[in-house]
Amino acid sequence: MMDILCLEHLRKSFGDKAVIHDLSLAVPKGSVYGFLGPNGAGKTTTMKMILGLLKADAGTITVCGEPVRFGETKTNRHIGYLPDVPEFYGYMRAKEYLRLCGEIAGMSVQQISQKSSELLSLVGLSGNNQKIAGYSRGMKQRLGIAQALLNDPKLLICDEPTSALDPVGRKEILEILHRAREKTTVLFSTHILSDAERICDHVAVLNEGRVTLNGTLDELRKQHGQGRLLVEFSSQDDLDRCRQLPELTQSFIGAQIEGYTAILCVPDLPAAETALLSVLVRESILPNRLENQEPTLESLFMEAIR
């Protein structure tokens, strides 16, 4: 798979404060790439460097194989960008704003009107004839996405598109991004892990200017953090019997036990689960609850930023 965006050994400091240290990552074509990190990790700075709005101190950035230059970079024709808080001209209406954007991008009148109505219906603003000044934050984000998708970008960059929104607004934005992935690669930054978990297939965790975790969600779940198996027994007796079975002593090492509940840390979750179930059946021990706890993005994230 071709990489649509490549960052190599990127560095950036503001004054004495180094914000990005030797950052390298590649965004494969067609992915929804979650760029995670706590506030102040350097996510916005990195995105601004990709767009040529900030100058990198060192390193290279390529978009669709072309190098990004600071200032007016030609690579931006491949990119649609939604800033963290998109600002608009309050006296305009959504259609007028998209027309301005289309004219600047050199689109024809016909293309603009066709694309605008298509995108406004995608973001749910098609019947809206209000001035932008009266928009809520969520509506502004939605118009921002329509704006970013206007020129059919190969790469859509969204800077914390959901952070300032209420749950309904967040859900809407995530759905729009999810639909956008059919046509474009999406890179979006967030510190809301459940959002990333919902729509991303790749994630990179940025912490203090370095990538500390990077890969597809499945890979990361497999590589990092063990699987956890929760068994809740119906009595202390069952628990004790189970612990003493020779097949299970290994699994119970390091297990967290609270009351009748044991959480087993196992390297291979499906194998451990099969083994446990067959032993339980053989011994006629019926647990109240058996739960397969996959490593969550949160646990991976907490590990990565430690």
């Binding site: 007016e72 931006n76 960008y81 800033p83 600002e87």
Partner: peptide
């Protein structure tokens, strides 16, 4: 200061 130009500049509007 408001940032209204950001989207237009990244859309290819020359400075």
């Amino acid at each position: 200061s408001r940032g209204t130009l950001t989207q237009l500049l990244t859309r290819g509007l020359p400075r």
